[in-house]
Amino acid sequence: MKENSIIIGFHAHVYYDLETRDVAAQIREGLGARFEVQLGRWHDQPIGPHPKSMYQVAFAPNQFPQVVPWLMLNREGLDILVHPETGDDVTDHTAHALWLGNKLELNIQVLQRIRPNAS
């Protein structure tokens, strides 16, 4: 088993649709007001491996104990993917993923095509 214990950051992907975009905006506002996070752009169409509209929230490892519990309690029924950044996008989005709400089917083939060659 290959051990990888270096996490350089985390991403949370907050998924929404047309009916829940306002709820997603409230969550985004709450995150930005409470935590030192980087709020990514709104993607109103599926992008990359993500099957529906979403925005990304990037945060440092030391923020995990504050950000993730807040998302657990304040996700308002939205589905959220939380994953580490280890340099292996495929594994980070699959084996290392944490889901709040429903686990959505990601298009992992997109990540496999851009995966760096293992040396």
Score class of each variant (00 low, 15 high):
109 Q>P: 10
28 R>I: 08
103 K>T: 06
70 W>V: 11
5 S>K: 00
105 E>R: 00
55 Y>W: 09
2 K>I: 15
15 Y>P: 00
108 I>E: 15
85 E>S: 13
44 D>Y: 03
91 T>Y: 00
25 A>W: 08
93 H>Y: 04
73 L>C: 03
79 D>H: 06
17 D>H: 07
1 M>K: 00
35 F>T: 05
36 E>N: 14
28 R>G: 08
42 W>Q: 05
3 E>H: 03
65 P>G: 07
1 M>L: 14
100 L>H: 00
102 N>S: 14
95 A>F: 13
11 H>A: 09
100 L>C: 04
82 V>M: 11
62 N>W: 11
14 V>D: 04
74 N>P: 11
16 Y>G: 05
4 N>T: 14
79 D>C: 10
52 K>Y: 01
68 V>S: 04
55 Y>Q: 09
74 N>G: 05
96 H>F: 02
87 G>I: 15
110 V>M: 04
97 A>P: 03
21 R>G: 10
94 T>E: 15
60 A>Q: 15
59 F>A: 12
97 A>R: 03
46 P>M: 07
10 F>V: 05
112 Q>G: 02
70 W>I: 07
14 V>Y: 05
115 R>Y: 02
113 R>D: 09
50 H>M: 07
39 L>Y: 08
5 S>N: 14
95 A>Y: 07
69 P>C: 06
28 R>P: 03
100 L>P: 05
40 G>D: 15
51 P>I: 12
81 L>N: 01
62 N>F: 07
103 K>Y: 09
76 E>G: 02
102 N>G: 03
